[in-house]
Design a binder for these strands. Structure first.
Length: 785
DNA sequence: GCGACGGCCG
């Protein structure tokens, strides 16, 4: 683009002035500093910087012009707004400017022009436009300083209009840096980050010169490392390398671009570190998973050799580091510090403290703070509700939500996602549906996270059809959304569909991650696709660069074990790069049970008991294996060993939700209000079953019981009680959904298959690992679980 | 006229 000589001169003149003002880093006269050398490599052509440094004035435009932006979704600003197509005689126009009151315009900064005062008093665009019109009539508009005030108002005030600001800007002949900055900051404040950068790019091309206020906004709008480095380069060359504001925002920019090394470099080289610099750097380390570094910096700050005292933000950032490091000791130190130094009540600090206590598992401490604090906002409610959910206290979370509603605080999408997670854990489909309806009614924005939470809830509460429908209704899906559906399909035995969606995901260009493969391997295992499973496992590292973790080895062990290839599964465990955990060995043990491989089972159990001697599941499974092989003595020995170690089988517990209320049953439970009816129903069930040829499978009950007792014990299992209650209290045709805390026993499994046929009901049981979808006398798990 | 901070999904 051709430029006039006068613009070029002006640019250079201004630039020299900036250089004189700049008392920090000087580019000329002493060669390149380390930072400049580093920047030079980021710059599109290092030669330009060198030539510039020799002080040749023509280089000013060369050095400033190139700024390569990486987004192409919008055309450059110049096509929307004519920039700098202005009256070239403007330099003389200042002489004729008079105010609307006929006063001479003075340059005394202590006496603002009356027109400027009026602009500052504007409360809406219509008033502003009147002033604008008057300024045009009087010629005052041709004073760049005064015209800039119009632009500033339009860009920065809530009642302003960025569009109008740009139009006005395009009419100003010699806009001041202040005017440009107003537009940039207006874009940044309104999250129009791309526009901020495009405007800067255009401004440089037109020969306008940035000042020290330009870069903070630009750095804030910069989301991309390559652009960030160019901007860093520009800020240095324009002489703001040692401006504290610029450096602070620069650090933050590097941190946002996940380039912590550069952020830290800027920090370490800063001469005047302010409390903001410290807070930013501590926050950056905390954000990018270097909590120890963050805490170290904080300790340096506490050391008091630094001239800066921590403030609330510093403390919030340190707490976020503590939360990542699960460093409760440090949290307590910070808490004490807060109390000692009397930081008073700071809502963000207080919520951060609550959050970190929740994350460290001290929900009660968080709750105390929550109950004590008079001020609450959506953040604090959400943190507290989430704290209870994470802690497994779903009821308390739901109670808190009710309290929130009573207080008239409306939940948002975060609240909803958290509550849906509670439903997912509880298996409370009705409640989940209610929340879904609430979301629609309250017009809560369903973003990817909330949509995924819905898909996950429906899938894990056994309504895979609705999960699939919600999935398809979502306009935007990320890897988690796909994974939630794939895992859901795998868990309810629809392996082929899970694999179909995996293919579709690939077509849609969504890259699977480690957890997607957990779902894929589970699907292959349930469907008995051994070769396909192995090939997916291999593709993880070969195609997607994901190193298989222990859960993937566990998945492959399941696939091999389920197919009866026990020896191969054992061999895999031998050669996997990490020691097996109880899930891997538990999978192997489960496979040994199904395939009746006693030797391998014993080997697996021995290892299991070594790594986790206090996991009751191992003992129970092992004794069941012995019992199923009629090795009563061994089975008894295992039970005795369990008793010696002071362990009990945790009580089996089944939940069923009817009309939004979750009913819980343990074995032989008679505490339910309708207990009498439930037991009548149970008798009816058992007699119908027996008529249909059902023989109780006694292999998994205690061996020292009389046969008749065994039968009774079986009939009292919690899932049978829950199913009986379900048959009683729901109308025919509706599916019965039960959530069980343990693995389903084989007797209940075969009984439920028959019940589904005899009563013509779909029965969906979620046990601790998967769904059993009983329909017409068969189960989706194909009798392997 | 400029800077830093908190909660959700697989």
């Amino acid at each position: 683009m051709p430029r006039s000589q006068s613009q070029e001169d002006r640019g250079w003149r201004l630039y020299s002035e900036f250089r004189k003002q700049e008392d920090g880093l000087t580019l000329r006269g002493r060669g390149l500093s380390e930072e400049e050398r580093e920047l030079q490599t980021h710059y599109s052509d290092g030669k330009e910087l060198k030539t510039y440094l020799k002080g040749r004035k023509t280089q000013i435009f060369v050095m400033a012009a190139p700024l390569t932006l990486h987004h192409h979704s919008k055309p450059p600003l110049s096509s929307d707004y004519p920039l700098l197509l202005r009256n070239p005689t403007s330099s003389s126009s200042i002489a004729v400017i008079t105010s609307s009151h006929g006063q001479k315009r003075t340059n005394d900064p202590n006496q603002p022009h009356p027109c400027i005062v009026s602009i500052e008093k504007c409360s809406n665009m219509s008033q502003l436009k009147q002033i604008h019109a008057q300024m045009l009539r009087t010629g005052l508009f041709f004073d760049p300083f005064t015209a800039g005030k119009i632009v500033a108002f339009c860009s920065l005030q809530d009642s302003g209009s960025l569009h109008y600001a740009r139009l006005v800007f395009s009419q100003i002949s010699n806009p001041t840096p202040y005017t440009c900055n107003s537009i940039i900051r207006g874009c940044t404040d309104k999250n129009l980050h791309q526009d901020a950068l495009l405007f800067y790019q255009e401004m440089i091309v037109q020969g306008l010169i940035p000042d020290r206020f330009t870069f903070p906004s630009l750095f804030k709008s910069c989301r991309n490392l390559s652009e960030g480095k160019q901007l860093h380069c520009h800020s240095t060359k324009f002489g703001f390398a040692s401006d504290t504001y610029a450096q602070n925002t620069l650090m933050n920019m590097y941190s946002n671009c996940r380039c912590l090394v550069s952020a830290r470099k800027v920090f370490d080289k800063m001469v005047d570190k302010t409390v903001v610099s410290w807070a930013t750097m501590i926050g950056a380390h905390a954000q990018w998973d270097q909590p120890d570094e963050a805490v170290k910096l904080f300790e340096r700050l506490m050391d008091e050799r630094e001239n800066v005292k921590p403030n609330e933000v510093t403390l919030v950032n340190v707490l976020s580091a503590c939360a990542r490091a699960r460093d409760l000791a440090m949290v307590k130190r910070v808490h004490q510090y807060i109390d000692e130094k009397g930081f008073g009540f700071h809502l963000v600090l207080n919520t951060a403290l609550m959050d970190v206590y929740c994350k460290c598992g001290c929900v009660q401490l968080a709750r105390d703070l929550f109950d004590k604090g008079q001020q609450k906002n959506l953040f604090s409610w959400n943190i507290m509700i989430n704290g209870h959910v994470e802690n497994g206290n779903y009821e308390e979370a739901l109670l808190l939500f009710r309290e929130m509603q009573i207080k008239g605080v409306k939940g948002d999408k975060v609240t909803m996602a958290t509550l849906l997670l509670a439903c997912t854990h509880l298996g409370a489909l009705e409640l989940g549906k209610w929340l879904h309806a609430y979301i629609k009614k309250q017009r809560i924005d369903v973003d990817v996270a909330l949509g995924t939470a819905l898909v996950d809830m429906y899938a894990k509460c056994g309504s895979i059809e609705t999960a699939t429908r919600v999935f398809h209704e979502m306009p935007e899906k990320d890897v988690m959304t796909w994974t939630a559906l794939i895992l859901g399909l795998a868990m309810c035995g629809q392996a082929e569909k899970a694999l179909q969606y995996f293919d579709e995901m690939h077509i849609k260009g969504v890259k699977p991650d480690a957890i997607t493969f957990v779902g894929i391997l589970a699907a292959c295992s349930h469907a008995g696709f051994v070769d396909e499973g192995i090939s997916h496992f291999n593709s993880m590292s070969d195609t997607y660069g994901i190193q298989p973790a222990i859960e993937h080895y566990g998945g492959l062990v399941d696939i091999l074990g389920r197919a009866g290839r026990i020896a191969e599964a054992e061999e895999l465990i031998q050669r996997m790069p990490m020691a097996p955990d109880r899930f891997v060995l538990g999978g192997l043990l489960g496979a040994c049970r199904i395939h009746g491989n006693l030797q391998a089972a014993e080997r697996a159990a021995k290892q299991l008991l070594e790594i986790d001697p206090y996991h009751s599941g191992t003992y129970v499974l092992m004794s069941n294996i012995y019992k199923s092989m009629r090795k009563w003595e061994e089975a008894k020995r295992i039970r005795e060993l369990m008793a010696e170690r002071g362990m009990k089988k945790p009580p089996g517990c089944s939940q069923i939700e009817v009309q939004g209320v979750v009913h819980e049953f343990v074995k032989g439970d008679s505490s339910h209000r309708q207990s009498l009816e439930i037991y009548e129903m149970l008798e009816d069930m058992i007699s119908k079953l027996k008529k249909a040829g059902y023989v109780p499978d006694k292999s998994e009950v205690l061996f020292d019981m009389a046969e008749e007792e065994k039968e009774t014990a079986l009939s009292l299992h919690s899932e049978k009680l829950a199913i009986a209650f379900g048959l009683l209290s729901t109308s025919s045709g509706t599916p019965i959904r039960v959530v069980k805390n343990l693995r389903m026993c084989s007797d209940c499994h075969s009984a439920t298959k028959l019940i589904s046929k005899l009563y013509n009901r779909e029965i969906i049981v979620r046990d601790r690992n998967r769904f059993h979808h009983f329909k017409d006398g068969s189960c989706s798990c194909r009798d392997f679980w």
